[in-house]
Design a binder for these strands. Structure first.
Length: 154
DNA sequence: TAGGCCATCTGGTCCT
DNA sequence: AGGACCAGATGGCCTA
């Protein structure tokens, strides 16, 4: 992560628009045979006996740009999740899980009309129905799950 | 050093 | 046909 910068975005865009049919972009994160994959994406084999593969640079650049956009979306989502401290580093899976949990928390806040442990209150209010609010599981267990954001809002 | 996380490459599939 | 999306593979970086 931590790639979010206008410079990176502009680099990715120029890499896309310039078609990148040159090996001179050696300052890029990985222009041809980077860290991953088979690496021999080039069509120039010394022996020349191998079958030529179509140049992948353009496709790779597009994929990099797509990944950049995905990461930008992760950052946008991350910025909406309150954490302590606020700039705490979150992995992608943590962002998704916490965002899901935070949405549930906000939903409970709306339905109960209070911001003091709304998830707990909401659970008690719905206890008669039998269906647990979210969290899934077997449904038979009586475990009380403590909402992270309820704990934070003390 | 092992494990987690990530970026990148790559080939396949679906869509326009 | 070309682009978008996806999942698998791979290697690098960081932390406990």
């Amino acid at each position: 992560m931590a790639i979010s910068s206008a410079a990176t975005a502009s680099y990715l865009l120029t890499a896309l628009t310039h078609d990148s049919h040159s090996h001179s972009q050696s300052h890029s994160p990985s222009d041809g045979s980077g860290s991953g994959g088979a690496g021999d994406s080039e069509d120039s084999q010394p022996g020349g006996s191998r079958r030529r593969r179509p140049p992948r640079q353009k496709i790779n650049a597009r994929e990099r740009y797509r990944t950049f956009n995905v990461n930008a979306a992760y950052e946008a989502l991350r910025s909406m999740i309150p954490t302590e401290p606020m700039n705490r580093k979150l992995s992608k899976i943590e962002i998704i899980r916490l965002a899901s949990s935070y949405i549930s928390h906000l939903s409970s806040t709306l339905q109960t009309g209070t911001d003091f442990q709304p998830c707990l209150l909401h659970k008690y209010e719905n206890d008669g129905g039998g269906g647990g609010s979210g969290s899934g599981g077997g449904g038979h267990s009586r475990r009380i799950s403590i909402c992270t954001f309820c704990l934070q809002s003390k």
